[in-house]
Nucleic acid binder design. Structure first.
Length: 646
DNA sequence: ATAGGGTTAG
């Protein structure tokens, strides 16, 4: 029996064991005192450990079992295989497979299935397939189920699906678990029709009342980006469980439908369905997208009062919510107090500082994160690069792109390049930015060319702007913002022919300027304005204040991003007074000094309003403008810390 | 006694 001893090096696990509760360790010790060589008492202990997720302990117990001279049997292996699978220990798993052979347990169906599952969970689907192929009577539904879900979880949906087809051809009965393994493989719009046919099959088999399957299908529709079908299914589920609600809420949140999230959350409250951590994560994500700090605060209070243990997911969601709503102090406190921060926590706080113009802090935190030994990924690089671009840290940003490629072997995608283009473009290195786009190893998307177009506006380069515009409308022909941007570039260049050409193009393509809106959250109520709005009860005062502001502001003059005088006036909105101006005036009328944040949506459409904001912030010392979630403007106390035109 | 499954963040 001593030959088994090198199966799992004991010292490797002892440090994990010491981290567990002492009473759990006591089970191990107690078991180690067995003098019997019979397998049964060991198996019982193994079952207890694996049932409670004590996988390391289970493996150690198995070692002790071998040491004591007991011989494992067919009942032993499923528990230990599950343990090595859960811990993703392929070497241990393979050694266990050898033991299975040595002890002649390889033809036990339960062991075979456990082996397939173990290999799949260690990302060794080929080995799993080998085990599967060795099974003579391949009629076992569970073996198929294990391998199908294994393929799906290893991102090989097509193999999983063809196994399902084989199963049906052979007449092997499938069941609910087959669906649960297969359906999550439909992870994109291209699989929607397959997912729908599985849904139909599921109804045909009379499994439609299985709540677990319904939840699974719901998530499938979310992943296929079909929120209408998701909602339709949701409405048809008669007795929804908490997971059903959570799947719907996080589905909306993941697809950016923040208003729907809050509506659903409210409905949950009315029906007195008790939310859990997963629910709150979705709701907080919606608050972050809307900049709705008030609701976020309520949610935090609710979490506290419910005595819920705040897990990492929830803490990260809170950090993200506060950071995006502009409350960096609160976000930082939560971040600092986290005993174990993960990559997402760092990304959230770095991104928070970045979008509010505190590029230096963001960069500092990023470097600290690297020192902590956390391996960065593409997303955290997006955060730090955009932080650099918002704060004008050109050199740092370029260095990070290099670091990302060289040190970490990460392939930059369009998002990274658009940050760098923005960065170079803003300081006037337009040609360099253009060359970078041409040299990209991935196809540039609209945002990349859009960043160049925006930079062309700042530096009044009409020629390059036309080039960028032609590229960008090819990629995003219906994005009105780009037409407006080019039109504004022509306006500044006094090129009336160009303006006409853009207008004509918009008319030909039947593009109408989206009614931009701005809103301001005040005393728990959201006040929404559209351009030329006169429906608000305070309309009179708002317009009066606006006139006064315009007068004072024009006396103060303005400066463009190079510090030169702005010669031309902002083009008036054809719809009337810009919605941003109305919201700003309303906010100034109704807020206390220094306490409120004004959230402006859709500045992208009439970006020229920022000149107004800039001028106003020179004469009003409490203006703090946060733009929508993707790109924020930051002006404070009259100093513009961000030259962002977009 | 033993195998296969649904919801969470940047």
């Amino acid at each position: 029996m001593t030959r088994y001893l090198h199966l799992v090096p004991l010292h490797k696990y002892s440090r994990f064991v010491s981290r567990f509760h002492t009473n759990k360790a006591a089970i191990v010790t107690k078991a180690a005192n067995f003098t019997t060589t019979a397998a049964t008492p060991w198996n019982t202990q193994l079952r207890n450990l694996s049932k409670h997720g004590q996988y390391y302990e289970a493996l150690i117990l198995y070692l002790q079992m071998l040491q004591s001279g007991a011989t494992p049997n067919a009942f032993t292996f499923p528990f230990v295989l599950k343990s090595s699978a859960s811990l993703s220990l392929p070497i241990t798993g393979k050694q266990l497979h050898c033991h299975v052979f040595k002890l002649g347990c390889e033809s036990e169906p339960f062991v075979q299935t456990a082996l397939i599952s173990m290999y799949c969970r260690c990302n060794l689907t080929e080995s799993a397939q080998e085990v599967f192929d060795e099974i003579p009577q391949r009629s076992l539904t569970v073996c198929y189920n294990a391998l199908i879900s294994g393929y799906v979880q290893n991102c090989n949906f097509l193999n999983g699906f063809s196994l399902f087809t084989e199963m049906r051809q052979r007449g092997v009965p499938f069941n609910a678990v087959t669906f649960l393994g297969l359906v999550p493989g439909c992870t994109g719009p291209q699989y929607l029709w397959l997912g729908m046919s599985l849904h139909c099959l599921n109804v045909k088999c009379g499994l439609e009342n299985d709540l677990t399957i319904a939840n699974c299908l719901l998530t499938m529709y979310v992943r296929c980006a079909s929120m209408e079908l998701t909602r339709k299914l949701f409405d048809h589920i008669p007795e929804k469980g908490l997971i059903t609600w959570n799947a719907m809420i996080s589905g909306y949140a993941q697809n950016g439908l923040a208003a729907e999230v809050l509506e659903l959350y409210h409905e949950m409250e009315l029906l007195q369905v008790n939310p859990d951590a997963v629910t709150f994560v979705g709701v907080l994500s919606a608050c972050a997208n809307l900049g709705a700090q008030k609701i976020g605060l309520e949610v935090e209070e609710k979490i506290r009062s419910s005595g819920m243990r705040c897990n990492v997911f929830l803490k990260n969601a809170l950090i993200n919510m506060y950071a995006r709503c502009g409350n960096l102090v609160k976000a930082r406190i939560i971040f600092d107090e986290m005993p174990e921060k993960n990559l997402v926590s760092w990304t959230a706080i770095i991104g928070g500082y970045g979008i509010h113009g505190f590029g230096n802090i963001a960069v500092e935190l990023f470097d600290k994160m690297i020192k902590t030994g956390i391996q960065p990924d593409g997303t955290v690089f997006v955060s730090v690069l955009s932080a650099c671009s918002h704060a004008g840290l050109t050199k740092k940003g370029v260095n990070y792109l290099d670091l990302m490629k060289r040190e970490y072997g990460l392939k930059p995608c369009s998002e990274h390049y658009s940050c760098i283009v923005d960065l170079l473009g803003r300081v006037g290195r337009l040609e360099e930015a253009h060359k970078l786009i041409e040299s990209m190893e991935v196809e540039p998307d609209g945002a990349v060319w859009g960043a160049l177009l925006g930079a062309c506006k700042i530096h009044k380069n009409v020629e390059l702007a036309e080039l960028a515009f032609n590229k960008v409308v090819e990629l995003e022909p219906t994005n009105i913002g780009y037409y407006v941007l080019l039109s504004n570039i022509y306006t500044e260049a006094n090129n009336s022919e160009g303006i006409l050409r853009v207008r004509l193009m918009m008319r030909e393509r039947k593009l109408k300027k989206d009614p931009g809106y701005s809103y301001f959250e005040c005393k728990g109520k959201t006040h929404l304005f559209v351009a030329g709005d006169r429906s608000h009860p305070q309309t009179k005062e708002i317009y009066k204040l606006l006139n006064r502001l315009e007068d004072t502001a024009s006396q103060h003059g303005g400066a463009n991003t190079n510090g030169q005088e702005v010669i031309n006036q902002e083009p008036p909105n054809i719809m009337g007074v810009h919605s941003e101006r109305l919201a700003i005036a309303f906010a100034l009328l109704n807020t206390e000094i220094g306490t409120d944040i004004l959230v402006i949506k859709n500045l992208r459409i009439c970006g020229d309003c920022h000149l107004f904001v800039k001028r106003v912030s020179k004469i009003v010392d409490r203006l703090f403008v946060v733009r929508d979630a993707t790109r924020f403007h930051h002006f404070r106390n009259g100093t513009c810390s961000c030259n962002d035109y977009w």
